[in-house]
Nucleic acid binder design. Structure first.
Lengths: 162, 162
DNA sequence: AGTGGTTATGTTATTAAATAACACGGACGT
DNA sequence: ACGTCCGTGTTATTTAATAACATAACCACT
């Protein structure tokens, strides 16, 4: 979240996430799933939750310790874990990560397909629940977001590779 | 297009593009648009057309000259141009590029929103025309493609940044 | 408690991907 | 011919991600 294709005011770039509540929920979720929310994972999630918009891996690395930077593998491993748990999403077109807006919890496991509106200018991201591309246009319009390009990539296995 | 999460046959990984025809069409398109299809651009497009599936920038760089590699900026600039002309698409989740299946031509300019089915195993990509996410599932099913994850990212400008 | 398997982390080094900055050259209108 | 775009060549650097291997923590079983 640190590019500025413009010179105007970006004071709208503020998110209001209850970080502590999210961390506690994540802890409960991991416990229930038999996974461990270890120190580096917790710290990584905390940083992403606290960041205003999508966060680069190397920004996590830099801010990981109060004193110095963390080693890349430490953070990349934590990021993979958090992504698998559905706590964060990777934004492919930005090489960045953002906290899931509707993370799975103990009652409600749902590794969902998320869609994102990504502002070229302020760098903010908006996660929208959507089931159709027309929806994206609709929701974008409703939010006053001007769509310039949509990326749609489905990963999986082709017929002959299955 | 060079990962193999399996050991089985990949002989289905073959595309049949009439490279010469595409190059000629591209030349006509550029002429009509007042753009120049210069040598590095042509060479880059030729390599991507000839490649079997999405191609990495550094693979283009390596194969650019018969003798040695090209310099990265040469190729990255050409890639940007080709993408803007709608001749190739960037696959964000692979850091790779693939020739557009239905490129714009002199009669028919259409910078369209493409969707891709990307096989984890053979690396092949299938470009599908689609207007809804449900469509993706349908078309995937029809093609025998098992979808594991869908990335949807819309880039543009948010309300306050417009 | 001891032991062995599994999972996660620490650490060093390397590879891969992309861009910055600036100089040069060629096309084109006037 | 002249200036001005636009595109390229070139060097260097930045950014992003992973490989490989050693160490440590957790857990289940005896």
């Amino acid at each position: 979240m640190t590019q500025h294709a413009c010179d105007h005011d970006h004071s709208h770039d503020t998110t209001t996430i209850n970080v502590d509540a999210r961390l506690k929920a994540a802890e409960a979720l991991c416990l229930a799933s038999g996974e461990r929310l270890t120190a580096p994972r917790l710290r990584t999630y905390e940083l992403i939750l606290g960041n205003n918009g999508p966060m680069k891996a190397y920004d996590v690395i830099d801010r990981f310790h109060p004193e110095g930077a963390a080693k890349p593998p430490t953070v990349y491993r934590a990021l993979s874990f958090l992504e698998q748990m559905g706590l964060i999403h990777r934004i492919e077109s930005l090489n960045a990560f953002v906290a899931c807006a509707t993370p799975a919890n103990v009652d409600h496991h749902h590794p969902h397909t998320a869609a994102f509106l990504l502002c070229d200018c302020c760098g903010q991201s908006e996660e929208i629940a959507t089931l159709s591309l027309a929806d994206i246009e609709h929701q974008a319009q409703h939010l006053g977001f001007e769509v310039k390009h949509i990326t749609v990539e489905a990963k999986g296995r082709c017929k002959t590779c299955r």
